[in-house]
């Protein structure tokens, strides 16, 4: 085999990043007790918003910011419908995906085949010169590091801060949180917008970096993978990272193995990312932690203060 392990692991991190962004955003949303199935729609909206802005201004940074704003704005539609008008979250989320895909296709019509300057990787001085590790860890684009930072920040926020405790309380029992004087709807709207912004960033990572171009339906189901990973990671940021890297890594590895012509049936190789990710995360969550793996108790339930 002549797979360069360092280059491979570096590519794996790139392949996993869109899923990480989308999944960590959805994790926060679900922790607040809201199920938003519109991840795919918010991602693709972020992808096109980012592409348009980066194309118009020549600044990839502005494109990334636009992607986050675009995703958050779209999620605001979901927030309004589910939090104020108490619509069904599953149906509204699905509609948001359909709407997002259509909106992005419409916005993106003039941008098909347009090229954009991609984000250049930054080589962190000194560290990137370390053999092997330097290639794997210290020679990526800034957005990838930001994704890792967000995962860490979410973990810290959820487990170490008062704000995180409130968010979890809202997700576990909105009535109790309400009785304690917390504004359930406000917490949830903020969580939904955070989820939208993260999904938008994941989309921009695809359209500005990983693919990188605008094509209709460029996300091609990544949002659904993100939703699945949140569940299999039993709502824990660390496991989410493992799940995303496993999925992205094995997905990329199997392509390499095909080039290498290894004697494993191609069908098995193609199914391997799904199988491996599910098995790994199921084993992780089958441990003694038991009940703590359960979903937030109020997940998907509408809340109305007058009740």
């Amino acid at each position: 085999m002549n797979i360069d392990i360092a280059v491979f692991l570096a590519s794996m991190m790139v392949a996993a990043t869109p899923v990480i962004f989308a999944a960590i955003g959805e994790l926060v949303v679900e922790k607040s007790g809201v199920l938003n199935l519109g991840v795919e729609g918010m991602m693709i909206t972020g992808a096109i918003c980012g592409f348009i802005l980066a194309n118009a201004t020549g600044s990839v940074f502005l494109g990334v910011v636009a992607a986050a704003i675009g995703g958050a704005l779209l999620s605001l539609i979901f927030a309004t419908l589910t939090q104020f008008l108490l619509s069904n979250q599953v149906a509204t989320g699905l509609a948001l995906t359909l709407f997002g895909i259509g909106l992005a296709a419409l916005l993106g019509k003039p941008y098909e085949g347009v090229r954009v300057d991609v984000i250049q990787p930054i080589s962190i001085p000194v560290l990137s010169d370390i053999p092997v590790l330097g290639t794997i860890l210290f020679s990526h684009d800034p957005l990838l590091y930001f994704g890792l930072f967000i995962v860490f920040a979410v973990w810290w926020f959820l487990t170490k801060t008062r704000g995180g405790l409130i968010l979890r309380a809202v997700g576990e029992s909105h009535d109790a949180a309400h009785a304690l004087g917390y504004n359930v709807v406000r917490v949830r709207i903020l969580a939904i917008m955070f989820g939208g912004a993260c999904a938008g960033l994941g989309g921009a990572y695809l359209s500005l970096l990983r693919v990188p171009q605008w094509t209709e339906n460029v996300t091609a189901g990544v949002g659904w993978i993100a939703l699945a990973i949140v569940v299999f990671a039993s709502w824990k940021p660390g496991r989410l990272l493992i799940g995303a890297y496993l999925f992205g890594g094995i997905g990329f590895l199997q392509l390499h193995l095909q080039v290498e012509n290894v004697p494993i049936p191609v069908e098995v190789l193609n199914a391997s990312p799904y199988i491996a990710t599910i098995i790994a995360l199921v084993i992780l969550s089958a441990g003694k932690s038991g009940r703590s793996n359960a979903a937030p108790a109020a997940l998907g339930q509408p809340f109305h203060a007058s009740r």
């Binding site: 990188p212 996300t219 080039v259």
Partner: peptide
């Protein structure tokens, strides 16, 4: 790749080839 259309996977396949 077992798909007609998946930009990210198609891009990854191209990258894997180029790397090799």
């Amino acid at each position: 790749v077992y798909t007609w259309f998946d930009p990210a996977k198609e891009a990854d396949a191209a990258k894997a080839m180029i790397e090799q």
